[in-house]
């Protein structure tokens, strides 16, 4: 019913992951698959662009939790960027700003990776 799409592209030493549509319990497996694939390819520097994401549920939030430990163990990170206010509020309420770097703009996040 509610469409969800993930697009990935390489940008320097990082991968930009663009989320589109609705991220909930039904669409979360698709995002999980994308994360697994990236980790499988040894790509641990990930910037998630939320600009086209309209909704996120707790199951959607869970996806980021599921992979963060493995990625950080491999000296990578998931950085979040370009959130709509509503989506940001959800992350903020849960205390995600304490756990993840959240940027207004994806280039800012990409710069953080290239500085490494």
């Amino acid at each position: 019913m509610n469409e969800f799409k993930v697009l990935t592209r390489d940008s320097g030493n990082a991968v930009v992951m663009e989320l589109h549509g609705f991220l909930d319990a039904h669409t979360a497996p698709e995002l999980e698959k994308t994360f697994s694939e990236l980790i499988g390819k040894g790509k641990f520097n990930i910037v998630v662009n939320f600009s086209e994401l309209n909704y996120i549920s707790s199951a959607g939030l869970g996806v980021f939790m599921a992979y963060i430990d493995e990625i950080r163990t491999n000296h990578g990170d998931i950085k979040l960027a370009n959130m709509q206010q509503k989506v940001y509020n959800v992350f903020d309420l849960l205390g995600f700003p304490f756990l993840y770097e959240i940027y207004k703009d994806q280039d800012e996040a990409l710069r953080k990776f290239s500085n490494h």
Partner: peptide
């Protein structure tokens, strides 16, 4: 007040 959801952060943080 500030606070992270249970199970999100397992360290002393």
């Amino acid at each position: 007040p500030a606070g992270v959801g249970l199970g999100l952060e397992q360290s002393k943080d």
